[in-house]
């Protein structure tokens, strides 16, 4: 068996091992790769940057541990930006397996930024049927969430005084790993007209660019790359920036595998005299 036949029949476990090693290598040797800011991420940043102090933004988070590698750094970067600008955050989660994860992440970030619950942020928790919940939030947040995640009535939380529905908020930024994005566009933006931005996993990003083109969303933070861009914008390099350096290195290895695999494939075909 020649070298090309060996390449074509390469044990997939060797590929797994090489990919694993390509993740570890830049992690240990701290390879830094510059990150370019895309307009769709800058749009989100600029919108938040230009909001007046004390504005309320709604941050629905719909993801679970399976996608936290991409979306957790995104949430941290966005919250850091919001709280540096002294914005007030109303967070909620419509994805049942991620509720406590999101609650912990928001709490962690609030502690880092020295923000107080009820004054600078609240967490509404989970309710089923996002479409119905978004509709009722458009009328009054208290319809679906008479109490917050901890059972405290919304009216007794200082930051919710004077905040009735989306009309009293400046932006909805959903960080989402589900089809819940469509609900926010369909039942939220289209019906109530608030500015909507989305932070999604890389798998989903390509499917939502048409909303950007049609002006239904103001920006997209897509996957780890988007999170790394946002970290650069808020001048706080974290897990996403570290991850993107590794990501770029792994991509090079994958491209190399694709090129070698294709060369081997075509050489073998030529040897066998297959023209098409």
């Amino acid at each position: 068996m020649g070298i090309f036949e060996k390449i074509i029949k390469l044990d997939r476990r060797i590929i797994f091992l090489v990919i694993f090693l390509s993740v570890i290598f830049p992690l240990i040797f701290k390879v830094n790769i510059p990150i370019n800011i895309t307009p769709e991420v800058r749009n989100v940043y600029n919108l938040i940057e230009n909001l007046p102090e004390g504005s309320v933004i709604v941050v629905p988070c719909e993801y679970a541990p399976d996608t936290m590698a991409e979306l957790e750094p995104m949430l941290y970067a966005v919250l850091r930006h919001c709280w540096e600008k002294n914005l007030r955050v109303v967070a909620c989660g419509f994805y049942v397996t991620g509720v406590t994860l999101i609650e912990q992440e928001i709490k962690y970030m609030a502690k880092q930024m020295n923000k107080k619950y009820g004054k600078d942020y609240i967490f509404l928790g989970y309710r089923p049927y996002p479409a119905a919940v978004i509709n009722s939030m458009g009328e009054d947040f208290r319809q679906s969430f008479p109490t917050d995640y901890y059972g405290t009535p919304l009216d007794s939380l200082p930051m919710m005084r004077g905040v009735k529905n989306f009309n009293d908020t400046k932006l909805v930024l959903t960080i989402n790993a589900t089809s819940g994005v469509d609900y926010w566009v369909l039942f939220g933006h289209e019906r109530y007209g608030f500015p909507l931005a989305i932070g999604v996993t890389a798998v989903m990003a390509a499917d939502y660019y048409h909303y950007l083109n049609s002006g239904q969303i103001v920006g997209i933070i897509g996957g780890l790359k988007g999170a790394a861009e946002y970290e650069s914008l808020v001048h706080h390099k974290g897990l996403a920036t570290m991850g993107m350096s590794i990501q770029s290195f792994v991509h090079l290895v994958i491209v190399l595998f694709i090129i070698i695999g294709n060369i081997a494939y075509f050489v073998i075909r030529k040897r066998k005299g297959i023209n098409r």
């Binding site: 993740v23 590698a69 991409e70 996993t201 890389a202 780890l224 991850g243 590794i246 990501q247 792994v250």
Partner: peptide, 10 residues
Amino acid sequence: VMARVSLLIG
């Protein structure tokens, strides 16, 4: 691919 690699990195 980018998303799956991100999960591995995480």
